[in-house]
Amino acid sequence: MAKQPPKREETLGGTIVHRLPFPGELTPETLQWLKALQPILIEQDYSITYLHSYAQDSPWFAGLTNKVLLGNREASGEYTYATPRGHGMYDGAETDWVELPQEGQVHAFTVCYFGSEEFLPETPYVLALIEFEGADTLLLTRLIGLDASEASLDWIGMKVQAKFLRNAKLKPTDVYFVPA
């Protein structure tokens, strides 16, 4: 039998209150009493939709929808970025697009058992940084197809292969990696 949590989960939400206890008559004594009042906490909703532009990095996302993994290379050809970058860190010039190999190896990883609210339903999930032959920087991605409960440092250095979502969402998770 699963172990019960030691306390009830705290959640927002509750009863709408129309009037709170308050002195019926304002006197010097009752005005002083107001300093002992517990703070009033209310909920405020806030949501917003952003129109986010991938701007100069857009071709990378277009590549994913076509099962192509792109990177950027400095104009000198001496430094290649596995995560898109419009201008070179070293030469300061506009970078060129290059195709990256679809196989790489795990540089570092973790298994997230908790996460930001948006990703809580997906826990546990594996985050990994991937290194590619011919690229000088890494790519952050999801690693799929491993048993999260068997996490081991031996996963570092593992050969992995890119997979692409058939129905792209135009997010960096349109590409993910599995053991090769």
Binding site: H52, D57, C112, S116, F119, L127, L140, P172
Partner: peptide
Amino acid sequence: SFDYPVGGF
């Protein structure tokens, strides 16, 4: 664009 949507945490 590249970090948060992968599982930002």
